[in-house]
């Protein structure tokens, strides 16, 4: 049973992969001299690595049926605090060695990310407020805090290790892509192999059913917001490594791009659904459209239109699969919830 359904899942992955390859061939042929180059490959993968990590931060929340509009603000705040430590602007007298500063800076960034996740989680899970409202308010809160810290100025410069992360390659593959791949493998493990992952999915698929399984709702949501904050912080570090500068107002558009990617990966088609690896593939898909069209000389208006059209096409193609997906979820949730039919 599981195998059959698994194959069905694979079919979606394979079709996404096919779409991606076909798109790469078509769009690449507009300007093959520039598109099929190592340089463009590296440029594309560096971009998609950044979007990809934000998409993970979004996915973690979406899977449990919410929406996190504060990922970019959290990322900026975390990176600004972490970066200030790395640059010696904060605690510069106490921590002197560059390596120690780097490590403490990373730690600070991650801690801030997770803490802001706790704040979001407290409001959403603890008090039962609407995720959209809470995260859009905390988004302003965090961005405002970052503005207070930086006074509107950019913090310029980055330690060697950070700037190398953003620009260097390992055997022709950018470090950033490897980092993103690592994050995706971690997420794949969490969402396919652990009880927490299954709980998140069940929560997204049928929150009412989950309520009967004791008070784990709170813990699941809290954990997922913390995880989202963690990935946001990593995203902040990635952005930092690409720019070697920190700003309080960086990248609002990344939120919607992250949503698009997650959506294409299928997380919303079925509440509680979405495969981590599908998201990884749709990242390539979106990036190929974006870079390919730019290289072929069309404007971003065209890109947006094609993004939107492709998304809707994929959605429509996937509609009949909804019911099967739901039943698979129940199996995965390890009998945490009473086996009620939720497909009315």
């Amino acid at each position: 049973m599981k195998r059959v359904l698994g194959n069905k899942q694979n079919r979606k992955t394979i079709s996404l992969l096919l779409i991606t390859v076909v798109l790469a061939v078509i769009i690449g042929s507009f300007n093959p001299d520039k598109f099929f180059t190592a340089q463009n490959f590296q440029s594309m993968t560096r971009q998609l690595a950044e979007i990809g990590i934000y998409a993970l931060a979004m996915f973690v929340i979406v899977v449990s049926g919410g929406l996190n509009l504060s990922i970019v603000a959290v990322a900026n705040l975390a990176a600004i605090c972490g970066g200030s430590v790395m640059q010696g602007l904060i605690l510069g007298d106490v921590i002197v060695s560059p390596l120690a500063r780097l490590l403490v800076g990373l730690l600070v960034a991650v801690v801030i990310g997770v803490l802001s996740g706790v704040l979001n989680g407290y409001f959403v899970a603890g008090l039962g407020l609407t995720a959209v409202l809470v995260t859009s308010a905390t988004s302003q809160l965090f961005q405002g805090l970052a503005l207070v810290i930086t006074k509107g100025n950019a913090i310029v410069g980055a330690p060697e290790a950070i700037s190398a992360l953003g620009t260097h390659n390992l055997l022709g593959i950018p470090y950033l892509l490897l980092l993103a791949l690592g994050c995706y493998i971690v997420a794949e493990f969490v969402f396919e192999k652990t009880a927490f992952g299954a709980q998140c999915r069940l929560l997204g698929a049928n929150a009412t059913a989950n309520q009967y399984s004791g008070n784990s709702n709170y813990k699941t949501l809290m954990k997922s917001y913390m995880l989202s904050g963690f990935f946001s912080a990593i995203g902040g570090i990635v952005s930092y490594s690409r720019m070697c500068a920190l700003r309080s107002d960086y990248g609002n558009s990344l939120t919607s791009t992250a949503m698009l990617v997650v959506l294409m990966g299928g997380a919303w088609v079925v509440a509680g659904g979405g495969k981590v690896m599908n998201i990884f593939i749709s990242l390539f898909c979106i990036q190929i459209i974006s870079s390919g069209l730019t290289l072929s000389g069309t404007s971003n208006f065209t890109r947006n239109t094609i993004w939107g059209a492709l998304l809707i096409a994929i959605l429509l193609a996937a509609t009949p699969a909804i019911q099967q997906r739901l039943s698979r979820l129940k199996g995965l949730a390890r009998r945490r919830a009473p086996n009620k039919g939720n497909a009315a």
């Binding site: 949503m259 208006f301 065209t302 947006n304 239109t305 939107g308 059209a309 998304l311």
Partner: peptide
């Protein structure tokens, strides 16, 4: 989300 991109650009 899809139509948002289309309406805003097409």
């Amino acid at each position: 989300i899809g139509t948002n991109l289309i309406f805003g650009s097409v």
